[in-house]
C-alpha cells in the first residue's frame, strides 16, 4: 500500500544531500500530513455528549420545578396549621 504524503512547506528548498539534517528553520515550517491519519475529535463522543447535555438540562429543570412545588406545599401546610389553630381558639 502506498501512503500519499502532502508537503505543506513554506520553504522553497529541501535539504541538498540525502541524510543531511534539516536546519531548525525548515523543521519549524514544514508540515507533512499522512493520509488516513487519526481524527482529533470523535464525532460519536460529541454526539453522546450533546445528547447527555440535553437530558441533563431537562432533568435539572424538572428537579428545580419539583423543589418549587415542595416549597408551595410547605407554605400551604403552614397556612393550614394556622387556620386549624385559629379555628380551635374560643370565639370572643
Amino acid at each position: 500500500m502506498t501512503t500519499a504524503t502532502f508537503e505543506l512547506s513554506l520553504t522553497q528548498d529541501t535539504p541538498a544531500g540525502e541524510g543531511a539534517a534539516p536546519t531548525p528553520d525548515e523543521r519549524a515550517t514544514t508540515f507533512q500530513p499522512v493520509e488516513g491519519g487519526q481524527e482529533t475529535r470523535s464525532g460519536e463522543v460529541l454526539l453522546v455528549e450533546a445528547y447527555a447535555v440535553l437530558w441533563l438540562i431537562l432533568v435539572g429543570w424538572i428537579a428545580l420545578l419539583w423543589r418549587k412545588q415542595r416549597a408551595v406545599h410547605s407554605r400551604l401546610d403552614a397556612l393550614e396549621r394556622e387556620l386549624d389553630k385559629a379555628a380551635a381558639r374560643p370565639r370572643s
Partner: peptide
C-alpha cells in the same frame, strides 16, 4: 393563589407566614 391566601390570613390576624 397561595400568596393571596397567605395575605388574607395575615389580614385575619394569622400572622405566621412561612416564606419558602
Amino acid at each position: 393563589r397561595l400568596a393571596r391566601a397567605e395575605e388574607d390570613a395575615i389580614d385575619l390576624g394569622l400572622d405566621h407566614r412561612t416564606e419558602a
